[in-house]
């Protein structure tokens, strides 16, 4: 459905994305995962025909993104990273406006947006600028869907949105996927990667890896320990100064720790930390998360 081949783009001296290739299948929920500056927005804008790549080609539903840009603009729904609706228009006015822009009406495609729109309908007379973050996202998504696009491109729809609204938003995406829409979504939140069919992990304009979240996690071969004590800050400092520690990072209530060459046993860490007088010490094996995978990949690129 979306096919990207060797796309590169730079702004003046800054290389925004370098040689990116990836395929998104029809009906897939595909995630671009990476921090700010990874090149997610640039890639999406190129696909949306808003920027022209320096090198490479890409097609969406078989249409070339440069030659057939008009067809693509008709066929794809787009939600930019910033809230890009008219703040001085009401919810209803915004939706109607985007419907007419796409030569359709709200009632014609109401089926598709009903589940989402119904949640903001009580506020349809409210100015979009006065909505809460979560409601703005829902309105923006409704507007992006108003013309029944085959492909949906969403640039960081959940950034700055609280955990509850994020969860709801992903549930909506899953529903849209059920309806056969191909979705390309970007996010800086690693935990959201697990909700995608496949993801591309991105950093500094490059794709580090592309796979299903499951495979990415399974591909993590290092031995990972979860360690905690009652003084986490001292724990992290002690572990980092331990000659057998390779990396130690905070993950919620635990530290995720790897040993040098993966040959360090749990008991070794335990003994070392006991000597350092840590209380309530707990050391056990833990399955990696996508964030561990990403951090491991980051480490590799830094080295």
């Amino acid at each position: 459905m979306i096919s990207i081949q060797h796309i590169s783009k730079s702004y003046k001296e800054v290389q925004a994305i370098t040689d990116i290739s990836l395929e998104v299948q029809k009906g897939e929920l595909f995630g671009l995962i990476g921090p700010d500056g990874a090149g997610k927005t640039t890639l999406m804008r190129i696909l949306m025909t808003l920027l022209i790549q320096d090198e490479g080609t890409a097609t969406m539903n078989g249409f070339d993104i440069i030659k057939d840009y008009k067809k693509i603009r008709n066929m794809v729904g787009y939600m930019p990273g910033r809230f890009s609706l008219y703040q001085d228009l009401t919810v209803e006015e915004n939706l109607n406006f985007f419907a007419t822009v796409f030569k359709t009406t709200v009632s014609e495609n109401y089926d598709l947006i009903r589940d989402i729109y119904i949640q903001i309908e009580p506020f349809k007379k409210r100015l979009a600028g006065k909505l809460s973050g979560g409601m703005k996202q829902k309105l923006a998504l409704s507007c992006a869907l108003i013309h029944k696009p085959e492909i949906l491109i969403l640039d960081e729809p959940t950034t700055g949105v609280d955990a509850v609204s994020r969860k709801e938003f992903w549930e909506m995406l899953k529903n849209l996927q059920q309806k056969g829409i191909t979705i390309l979504v970007s996010t800086p939140y690693m935990d959201e990667a697990m909700l995608c069919n496949r993801v591309a992990l991105m950093q500094k304009g490059k794709v580090l890896d592309i796979d299903t979240p499951r495979n990415l996690v399974d591909g993590y071969t290092r031995k990972l320990y979860a360690i905690r004590s009652n003084d986490m800050h001292r724990l992290i400092l002690d572990l980092r100064s331990y000659e057998k520690t390779d990396s130690a990072y905070a993950f919620g209530q635990y530290l995720h720790v790897t040993g040098k060459d993966d040959e360090v046993e749990a008991t070794e860490f335990e003994n070392y930390l006991m000597r350092k007088n840590h209380e309530d010490l707990e050391v056990h094996d833990i399955a990696p998360t996508i964030e561990d995978v990403f951090m491991e990949l980051l480490q590799d690129t830094i080295v």
Partner: peptide, 29 residues
């Protein structure tokens, strides 16, 4: 919007400030 490693390094700074007796009042998603 910060990458996972930088994010954690930032928290190291927060811990250091707290060790120095500075109270840290933080919001996060």
């Amino acid at each position: 919007g910060v990458d996972p490693i930088t994010r954690r390094k930032f928290w190291d700074l927060i811990y250091e400030a707290s060790d120095r007796g500075i109270t840290v009042f933080v919001t996060t998603h």
